[in-house]
Amino acid sequence: MEYIKNNFDKIVTNYNGKCIVDFYTDWCGPCKLFSKVFEEVEELKKDIKFFKVNTDSNRSTAQKLGIMSIPTIILFENGKEIKRNIGFMSKENLIDFIGD
């Protein structure tokens, strides 16, 4: 799990392949619970990179991506957004969301 503190563009936009980003804050209950799911699924999906972005300390990134609700999960492929989900997801749903 890699926490992006800054350089979101450099890290995610230039990422070659699939990556998934969990946008969260420390004070959001559903985010805290989703974090556990995110970590569990990371163990199962070794072929995809998992990132986390704290929207409190990365406000400009959240704004640029139009994130106004958390948790928001965005799947990227070669730096481009493929799809996003707003709100908590179960482990099963997150696995489905990522796909093959």
Partner: peptide, 17 residues
């Protein structure tokens, strides 16, 4: 507008506003 201005959780999303 779900997640684009409409929210059901102030403690989750309040800081965006």
């Amino acid at each position: 507008f779900d997640g684009k201005g409409i929210s059901y959780c102030a403690t989750c999303d309040g800081n965006f506003y």
